[in-house]
Design a protein around this nucleic acid. Sequence first.
DNA 1: TTGAAAGCGGTACCAG
DNA 2: CTGGTACCGCTTTCAA
Lengths: 343, 343
Amino acid sequence: MTKGRSSKSVTIKQVASLAGVSPGTVSNMLNGTAPVAKETVERITNAIEELHYVPNVIASSLRSKTGKVIDVLTPNMNNTFYTRILSTFTELADKNGYYARVIGFEYSVEREKRVLSNLQHHMPAAVVIFNGFGDEEEIYKLIKRGIKVILADRVSQDDSIPSISFDNKKIFNDIVKMFKKKGYKKIGLFTELPQIQNIRERMDNFLCTLKKYGYPADDSVVFAREDLRLDNLKNGYQYMKEILEEKDKKELPDAWVASSDLLAIGMMKAARENGYSIPGELGIMGFDNIAVAEYVEPGLTTAEQGQELMGRELWKMVVGLLKGDKIEKKKVLPQKLIIRGSC
Amino acid sequence: MTKGRSSKSVTIKQVASLAGVSPGTVSNMLNGTAPVAKETVERITNAIEELHYVPNVIASSLRSKTGKVIDVLTPNMNNTFYTRILSTFTELADKNGYYARVIGFEYSVEREKRVLSNLQHHMPAAVVIFNGFGDEEEIYKLIKRGIKVILADRVSQDDSIPSISFDNKKIFNDIVKMFKKKGYKKIGLFTELPQIQNIRERMDNFLCTLKKYGYPADDSVVFAREDLRLDNLKNGYQYMKEILEEKDKKELPDAWVASSDLLAIGMMKAARENGYSIPGELGIMGFDNIAVAEYVEPGLTTAEQGQELMGRELWKMVVGLLKGDKIEKKKVLPQKLIIRGSC
DNA sequence: TTGAAAGCGGTACCAG
DNA sequence: CTGGTACCGCTTTCAA
């Protein structure tokens, strides 16, 4: 019950009366809603200076139902894959007079929905959702209120919802081809559960491509476990350790593609500890090309998802939507195979 | 000019009229502001259900100047040191009915100030600022409006502003002692510029401790460069590379403490590439104990700053402040030396 | 216990 | 170009 906020803020009314005009005029000038006489502008400007007036964006968006903030939901703030995209995105937002807030939901549908439901009223200009699932209803609510919604690293079923994602098809060709060329005999996929649509897609394409190149493509080559999605490093390490120790060496893949770099780095440690040489006995590659990938030893081969690129394209989409432009609703970004030392 | 928000939201008025009561009564019931008859409660509850009413938090905070959101400013979203703290903090906030939004300012004073100035009106219950500088004026404005401000990983000059930080004193004793025991001859500090008060403190204590143990403690052992604060990995790598290639090997430190793990990881790569063996010819340690530190090869020795701990303590402070409890204004958290393979 | 009405700080609309 | 005023959705007196 701590109420009692002190120090009232300077209001548009005070500015107006000091400048000897009406609040509406001040508002018009500030927003360019209607022309204002040069001389009046000056008086208002002075008043603003004098009182240190800062417009109350909240009150404004309550009335106009429009603001300059963009909320971004991310499944996991600890993953630099996301943060990298986010920092280029927020940079751009900032440069354009918007400002972006990041809200993490740690892969919890409930949390995600709760946040989205709150957002209804915060009236952000747009909300960007990374991955996420089971949120359709909330999304439609936002849209109905005129808030732009963009899906990132995920493509929507609904064609009217704009989304931006990485191409998950061609890349697997490159990957399997590479492994084949290097002489690996069996390729395994190491991944979180295919709950996230993105992962599901990768898995399907992976299996498909394996078949195409004559590799085994049954259950024995996919290694998925739920806890892999949180704390990628640790859980990737542990799961790999279990696999290496419990399964028969003959049956195990000698080449591994992990669904994220963090996972791959965890696996590499497990492999080292169990006496496997990389890339000699075991080839491992990741996904994302996060910054450290280049710094571990051996360097991690990975499928690069241009995070800066995604950040920029995302911003472009947001701006386009905000301006009401016709935009490409389904943007697909290429991935690039980056070969380093790990396979 | 895209206006025209569609689909009006359900308002408290509609609920009131459906329940046959006044808006004030609904508000009273929702907030426990005044007793409401049992039977009335029921009618209101039904109306809420029926209309799927969700209170508009914006309007509410405009009037009451109080809300359930906490804004967190962080200098860099790409650094898992911060994100680790943030994710435990937001988790806690979420569990307690609050919700935390993260805003990055990328070490820009201007951006930081701009954000803080906006926040005035958003009326968060509290704002947490990680590092940051030159923001005193804005901070006081927030406080004057009754918004709680907490400084993190930084201690305030002003005793009335609560802050939480890691102990930067004792840890250096442990560090230098360790290096001494391992027989290193010269210890260097590799760090971003001491603009951030936190870094300044580390530097002072470092030099101080070196002297105490009879190590050289002049300018020749501190290696600082501005760009080190962004993209730690890359810039750490590059700077180290330059140092190794340009300076005379005899004069260079054989032991290095980097002001962050990311920096250290970058340095390790540079050292490897220039043919140095770690920890044989060069000992390197970092600061933070970020997750990957354990996964690189060799494992990175580091000063652990318990990020989960900081997250939890931070939340405790926020809650305390919000409840108006008397709290410890200057919380200092211990650091722990974690010795792995890199020195 | 409840209702009526006056704001919170802006913006939208209309008349002049 | 400018002023007046209703109103966004909710909370807060205050009187009944």
